[in-house]
Simulated scan of single mutants.
Amino acid sequence: MFHPLRVREVERLTDDAVAVTFAVPPELYDTFRHVPGQHITLRRTVDGTELRRTYSICAPAVPPPAEPVLKVGIRLVEGGEFSTYAVKELSAGDTVEVMPPMGRFTLRPRPGRFAAVVGGSGITPVLSIASTLLAEQPDARFHLIRSDRTVASAMFLEEVAELKDRHPDRFHLVHTLSREERQAGLPTGRLDTERLTSLLPALLPVAEVDGWFLCGPHGLVRAAEDALTGLGVPVSAIHQEIFHADAAPVDAGAAPAPVRAAAGSAKLTATLGGRMGVWPVGEGETLLDTVLRNRSDAPYACKGGVCGTCRVKLLSGEVHMDRNFALEPDEVSAGYVLACQSRPVTETVEVDFDA
């Protein structure tokens, strides 16, 4: 459900990025209180066309009764209608429709040692995770390895520096650049699998890290995942969130898709908001397409398999997910699928959006 929220502040971060803070009315405090690492979906209608985009919350989580700090980082995407509007036109006093926080790329503060490898705007959710953790857990440590093209393109430089000043003994920062030379620090270049495999053990005790958070472009996240698994880190300790999934290549080593049910022969049973419906799946439709054709209130945001907003529990039947950048392995094992990426393989499929 979307709520109209007033923009309290638009802060310029870089030439192509802003931080947008929303004012949350007291009656919605509980609705918009987030877990560090979650995102919100923003909605705007232009010439009758609805635009939805998800953006990660960068602010630390605050306990009741304080007002939740709802602040997101938005970077301009070439050709992106919503990001262009947000970066170039949005201003304090405007109203935007906002969906409550969602997402499972999260860390509820607890003692331990945690680390993140992020690229570009991937710093946004990790900033919330690290700042909340260090503020609430005096025994926790956080290691941040971030990569940006140049210093000028780096989002939240001041906020990360303040975090380092506030927790000098518990926050470890390494900042690499891929397109700019520096007199000090690590050599310029991309963080690929080979480089991360040698770099990470030199920076921190990899085996002692309780949880890894990887966020950014597809290439960086995959490189970090491969490096970590090669270093013996269990998959259960690696959490990831991919940005810009449109640029992600199809996995050439993946198993071929099973034969799908013939167009018009598959029937979808879906429970949403406590109400059940049964509908035929049209040719080329995903489960989400079918539900939206009959229920406009079906939850979704990116439609790219990234945000996880359309996660459903598969109760019966079989589907094929075209791609998945949102669900953790244990969620897939438990029977969850992304409605925006799933197409029927069997003639009957039943899912539950409420599960």
Rank of each mutant, 00 (worst) to 15 (best):
A224D: 07
E162W: 12
Q240T: 09
P111H: 03
F32M: 00
V118E: 14
R8M: 11
V337D: 00
R108I: 04
R260W: 00
F114K: 06
F142P: 12
P100T: 04
V209F: 13
V72M: 03
K88H: 15
I129W: 06
E181N: 06
V118I: 13
V46T: 10
M321V: 00
A252S: 12
H244Y: 03
F22H: 04
A227M: 01
E331S: 06
D169E: 13
P68L: 03
L287H: 02
V96K: 13
V87R: 11
P168C: 12
A263G: 02
R8C: 09
V118M: 13
Q240K: 14
H239P: 10
L338D: 03
V319C: 06
H39T: 09
A161R: 15
R75W: 12
V332T: 06
C310G: 12
P36T: 10
M321G: 14
E67T: 09
A227C: 00
P329K: 08
R146T: 15
T31N: 01
V98M: 05
L42G: 14
V332W: 01
I238Y: 13
T193K: 00
D47P: 01
G264L: 08
A224I: 04
L70C: 06
L173N: 01
E318Y: 05
A161P: 12
G119K: 04
V209P: 09
S121K: 12
L196H: 07
L204N: 08
E158W: 14
P125Q: 05
R295F: 00
L314S: 00
M102E: 07
R179Q: 03
L199F: 13
A184K: 13
R113N: 10
I145M: 04
V349G: 07
F105P: 09
S316P: 02
C58Q: 05
V117A: 08
R75I: 08
L51R: 06
P258I: 02
P256S: 07
V62G: 09
Y55N: 09
T124V: 12
F142D: 14
G284V: 01
I123M: 05
D47Q: 10
A86K: 11
L314C: 02
V126T: 11
P256V: 06
S296L: 00
L173S: 06
R33S: 00
V96H: 14
T54H: 12
Y336I: 02
E158Y: 13
Q137C: 15
C340D: 08
P205Y: 15
L327A: 07
T229I: 05
L157D: 15
L272A: 09
L287I: 03
